[in-house]
Design a protein around this nucleic acid. Sequence first.
DNA 1: GAAAACATGTAAGCTGTTACATGATTCG
DNA 2: CGAATCATGTAACAGCTTACATGTTTTC
Lengths: 307, 307
Amino acid sequence: MTIEHAILGILSIRPMTGYDLKKVMQDSTYLHWSGNNNQIYKALLGLQEDGYVYSEVQHQESAPTKKQYTITQRGLNTLTQWSMLEPEAPECKKSFLAQLAFSGTLGNEELLTLITGYENTMWAQLQMCKERARRGGGLTPRSKREALLWEMIDNNIETGLTAELDWIRSLKERLSEAGMGKEGTHMQYEVHTQDQTKFIEVRAHASGLRTTQDAMDLISLCAEHDCGLMLLHEDALSTDFFQLKTGVAGEILQKLVNYRIRAAFVLKDISKLSVRFKEMMLEANKSNQYRFFDNRADAELWLMKGV
Amino acid sequence: MTIEHAILGILSIRPMTGYDLKKVMQDSTYLHWSGNNNQIYKALLGLQEDGYVYSEVQHQESAPTKKQYTITQRGLNTLTQWSMLEPEAPECKKSFLAQLAFSGTLGNEELLTLITGYENTMWAQLQMCKERARRGGGLTPRSKREALLWEMIDNNIETGLTAELDWIRSLKERLSEAGMGKEGTHMQYEVHTQDQTKFIEVRAHASGLRTTQDAMDLISLCAEHDCGLMLLHEDALSTDFFQLKTGVAGEILQKLVNYRIRAAFVLKDISKLSVRFKEMMLEANKSNQYRFFDNRADAELWLMKGV
DNA sequence: GAAAACATGTAAGCTGTTACATGATTCG
DNA sequence: CGAATCATGTAACAGCTTACATGTTTTC
C-alpha cells in the first residue's frame, strides 16, 4: 500500500485540497503516514499527471488560492482494483519488546519502571484514540455500511490497545508471582464510582508528590484502573509543589495534561499560599484539565460534571 | 530504536558473526528488520569503529573465514542506557484498515471475500508465530527472569494476533446482523475433538473443491475454528481435482501448505485413479503436510498422531 | 551435479521524515 | 503584534529494502 492509494481513497469520499488531505491523514488512526507536505503534494502532482485525479484552482477572496483535487473515473477504477487485492498482514514495530528482550542488565526496580512507562504510554494512546473516535475523522460516511466499517476500524485500534494493556497487566502479574514485582504502593487512595464514572481519590502520599517518578506512579494508577479522573488532597502533595520556582508543580501538571488526566486539587487553606501560586491557580482554573478547590464537594462536582 | 541497538542487544546475549545476527533477526518476531546484509554489516563496521564491539577473525578449515563480534564494556553501557529510555509507542501499519475504509465501491460479496482473506492471512501469521515460539529464538536465556520475559514477548505477539482474529469475527457478525453477511455455507462438515486436538472433517461440498475461492473457504473454516487439521472426503472434491493437468489439486494443496494446514484425504478407490495422480500421491505421502488414504481410520490416525 | 547453507560485503533505489521557504489571513 | 491557521511547495537526509557480487562447503 502506497500513499497514492490512501490519497485516492480519501478523494473518493470527497474532493479536497492537499492541505485537507494532510489534516485527514494526521487525524487518522489507520492511515499511518505523518501527513507531511513533501509526500502529499508530490503524490498529487504524480497522480494528476497519470490522470487519476484532476485539480481546479479556486481563487478565494481574502484567503490563499487553493487547488481542489477530484478523483477521475480512472482513479476510481484503480482504487476499486486495489480494494480487491489480497490484504497484506499488518506490520508492527514494537520496539518496546526489543527493549524488554535485552533488559538483562537492568535491576528489577528499573525493569518495573520501564514496564510502567510503557503502560502509561499505551494508556495515553488509548485515551487519544478514544478522543479521536469521538470527534470523528472529518469525513462523512456515504452509506450505512461505510459508517459501520468506520466504526469497526476505530474499534480495531481500540481493541488492539486494550489487548496490549491486558498483556502488560499479565506481565506484571507474572513478574510479581516470580518475586520480581513491586512493593506495596506508598499511596493512600480509593477508587470511587458514581453514575458509571470512575475517579481516583488520593488522600496521602508517603513522600509527597515531588519527583517525575511520583507523577508517573499517579498515571500508572490511572492506567491500572482505566480511569482518567483524579481528586488529589493537599496531604498527598509536597511543600516543593507549592514553591513554583522548584518546577515540581509545573512538571507534574504537565504530565497530567500529556496523559489526558483531569485532576481536581483540594487545598485546605488557600489564603496561606504565595502570591505567585495563587496567580497560577487562577490561570489554571480557566482550563478544563486541572483545577484547584478549597473543598472536596466542589472538586468532585467539577470532576464529575466537567463544570 | 535503531538497528544498532538491536545488534548490541543480541551481542550482549552471546558473541556471534554478522551472518548469525542476520538469522536471529529474520527468525525474530519482535525485531522488525528484514535482516538484510547491507544494514547489518554496515552497522557492525560502524559499531566497531566507535568501540562498541570488537571482532576476532576466525579462520576455519573447510569453511569460510568469519568475523566473530563481541560487545565491549562501552557497548554494554550504551545498551543499558538505551534499555532505560522511555519506551516508544509501537507503530502499526495496518493497511487492511485503509483498504476497508475505502471499500465503498465494492459489493457485499467482494467485501466479505476481502475480510475472509484478511482472516486467513492473520490466522497463518498466528500459526507461524506459534511455530516460531515452539522452536525458540536460537538464543538461550541467561536467567529465569529473562526466560520469563522472552516467553511473555512471544505471548504478546500471540495475544495481539488473537485479538485481531476476534475483531474480525466481531466485524463479520456486525455485518451479518446488518444483513450484509454471508449466505449459509455450502459445505457439509463437522468439528471433532479428541485428546484436546481438534480436526475438521469435510464430508461434502456443494460444487466440489475446484476454485481458489473454494480453497480459501476451507482455510477460513480452519481460521474460524482455530484448527489446523483437516480430514477431506472424496465427495468434497471435484473431478477436476483428480486431473492434474487442470492444476486444481496443485493450487489447493499449495494453499493448504501456505496456511500450515495438515490435511488427510480419504479416497474410496485408489485403483481407479490416473497413473500421474498416483505418482503425485506417492510423492505427497512422504511429506508431513498432506497425505492420501484409502480408509478413514488410517487418515484420522495420521492426522492426530502425525505418524 | 545442482541446490542450499555458510559467510562477507556493495550499489542502487524507494519511502518517509524533518526542516526550510513563502505568503496571506485570522484570532487573542 | 505575535501566534496560529490556511495553503503550496522544496531540499536534504535517514532508514530500510531488493538485488548484485563472490567464494566455499555441505547436502540431496
